[in-house]
C-alpha cells in the first residue's frame, strides 16, 4: 500500500467567547488505503471534513486543529511529524492542488520563481537554475499554457483563473510526485474551464501513472477519472466502492440522495448538489447515525447507535443499518 490511513480524527478547538471552549470533530475516525497508481474520489457535502482529512496528513491544519490516529506513506509515518521530515515528502512525493487558484499563488512573486523554487528545495545541491527554468517552462507547456517562456516571467494577476490553476497543477507535478491531492480543483472555475482541467488531470494520470485523490462535490465529474469513490458525511466515510458500485448499486441512503439530487447551477461554483434538509451542526452532531435527521429510512436504533461498517462486496463497504436490495 502506498498510503494507509488508520482511524484518523481531526479536532478543532472553537472559542466563541461566549461559552467555554468547545471541540469540533471535523473528521471522526477515517480509515482508507490507496495503492500506487490508483485514483479515488472523495465526495460529500460542504463541511463533511474532506479537506481537513487531507490537510491533516500533509501537516497543513489550521493552528486550532489537531490530528490523531496514524497515517503512513510508503512505510513512513506522516501524522504529526516535524515540518522538516514532512518537507521531504510535501511537494516531492505528494503534490497538492487547491480549490481557489486566485488565492493559491503568491501575488508578489513571478510564476517562474514559484515554480522553480519547488526544484530548488527538493533537489538541494543538484539544483541548477538554468535547467530548473527549462523544466519549469516544459511543465507549463505540458499543462497547455500558451507562450510558456513569457508566462514564466508573469505575475499571477496577469493570468486568468483557469491559467492559474494550470500553473498550480504544473507546480504540483514538477517533482514527479507519486500522489496528487486535488482539493476541488475546478469548483472556482467556469464550467468550460472545468472540463479542460479534468481532461488535463486525466491526461496526466494516463501518461505518468500518478495516483490522484480528487476531492469534489460533483459526482458526475469523477465518473471518467476515478477507480473508486469514497462518500463522506459528517466526518465519517459512509460508503466506499468502485465507480460502478456507487453509481448503480449505492447502498447508503445518503449516497442515493446525492445521486438523485439534480445538480443545480449556482452562479459561480458550477454544479452544487442539493439534498433535502440541513447538513448537521458539527458542534452538535446527532447521536447514532449522523444522517438520521435527514434519512428517509430512519429506524429507532439509528438515533442511538452508530451503524457499523458492512461489507457488500470485496471493495464495497457501507455504514448503515438498513439492509435492502
Amino acid at each position: 500500500m502506498m498510503l494507509t490511513i488508520e482511524n484518523l480524527r481531526v479536532d478543532f478547538t472553537v472559542d466563541s467567547g461566549i461559552q467555554r471552549k468547545q471541540t469540533l470533530q471535523a473528521v471522526r475516525g477515517v480509515s482508507l488505503e490507496l495503492d500506487q497508481g490508483e485514483n479515488v474520489a472523495i465526495v460529500g457535502e460542504s463541511g463533511s471534513g474532506k479537506s481537513q482529512l487531507f490537510n491533516a496528513l500533509m501537516g497543513l491544519l489550521p493552528p486550532n486543529g489537531s490530528a490523531h490516529g496514524s497515517v503512513s506513506f510508503n512505510q513512513q509515518a506522516l501524522l504529526n511529524q516535524s515540518d522538516k521530515s514532512l518537507n521531504k515528502i510535501r511537494g516531492k512525493e505528494i503534490g497538492m492542488i487547491f480549490q481557489d487558484p486566485m488565492t493559491a499563488l503568491n501575488p508578489y512573486l513571478r510564476i517562474g520563481k514559484q515554480l522553480t523554487e519547488v526544484l530548488e528545495v527538493h533537489e538541494g545541491a543538484n539544483f541548477n537554475k538554468e535547467s530548473a527554468k527549462r523544466r519549469a517552462i516544459e511543465m507549463l507547456d505540458r499543462v497547455k499554457i500558451k507562450d510558456p517562456e513569457q508566462r514564466f516571467n508573469s505575475y499571477p494577476h496577469e493570468l486568468s483563473g483557469g491559467m492559474r490553476q494550470r500553473v498550480v497543477i504544473a507546480m504540483a507535478l514538477l517533482c514527479k510526485p507519486k500522489l496528487i491531492i486535488a482539493d476541488e480543483p475546478t469548483t472556482a472555475l467556469d464550467v468550460t474551464v472545468q472540463t479542460e482541467i479534468i481532461r488535463l488531470l486525466k491526461d496526466i494520470y494516463r501518461k505518468e501513472r500518478t495516483s490522484i485523490v480528487l476531492i469534489t462535490h460533483d459526482l458526475p465529474l469523477v465518473a471518467g477519472l476515478c477507480d473508486r469513490i469514497i462518500v463522506m458525511y459528517a466526518g465519517k466515510i459512509v460508503e466506499t466502492g468502485t465507480v460502478d458500485e456507487i453509481f448503480y448499486k449505492a447502498q447508503h441512503p445518503y449516497t442515493q440522495a446525492l445521486l438523485a439530487a439534480t445538480p443545480t447551477n449556482t452562479e459561480k461554483s458550477g454544479k452544487m448538489l442539493a439534498i433535502d434538509g440541513q447538513p448537521p451542526d458539527p458542534l452538535n452532531l446527532p447521536a447514532g447515525c449522523a444522517f438520521s435527521p435527514r434519512c428517509a429510512f430512519v429506524e429507532e436504533r439509528c438515533k442511538t447507535e452508530s451503524p457499523p461498517e458492512r461489507k457488500i462486496d470485496a471493495g464495497h463497504l457501507v455504514s448503515c443499518f438498513r439492509e435492502n436490495n
Binding site: 515540518d83 521531504k88 487547491f98
Partner: peptide, 26 residues
C-alpha cells in the same frame, strides 16, 4: 493565514524560506 502560504507549505518549503520569500512582502 493566506492560501498561498499553505501552497508554499504544501510545496515543502522550509519555514525560513516561507517567511523570508513568501510572507515578507505582504
Amino acid at each position: 493565514n493566506m492560501p498561498y502560504i499553505r501552497t508554499a507549505k504544501a510545496k515543502g518549503l522550509p519555514t525560513r524560506l516561507i517567511l523570508s520569500r513568501h510572507a515578507s512582502r505582504a
